[in-house]
């Protein structure tokens, strides 16, 4: 006797949904010992006021460091 509703299609969908859980990607990060794993950082002279000019940035910083020496600043 032929069934009133075709059972093949719902069974296939149910099997697909249930088995979909088995294909889940591992959610644990694989850490590599001793190597930075975070996001990359931009350098201080990139963008902003210095626009990639490393020499200008170094000069600006050098002047700031030197100005901390009040013996030189007052002479």
């Amino acid at each position: 006797m032929k069934p009133r509703f075709p059972l093949g299609l719902p069974a296939a969908v149910a099997a697909f949904v249930l088995l979909a859980g088995c294909s889940e990607e591992p959610q644990v990060v694989q850490y590599e010992q001793g190597k930075y794993q975070g996001k990359t950082d931009s350098r201080p002279w990139e963008g902003g006021a210095f626009n990639g000019d490393k020499t200008a940035w170094e000069r600006a910083l050098h002047d700031r460091v030197r100005s901390q020496n009040e013996y030189r600043r007052v002479e």
């Binding site: 201080p44 990139e46 902003g48 006021a49 210095f50 700031r64 460091v65």
Partner: peptide, 9 residues
């Protein structure tokens, strides 16, 4: 704040 990128200490 990122003062180093502004050329400050």
């Amino acid at each position: 704040r990122n003062r180093l990128a502004q050329g400050k200490l």
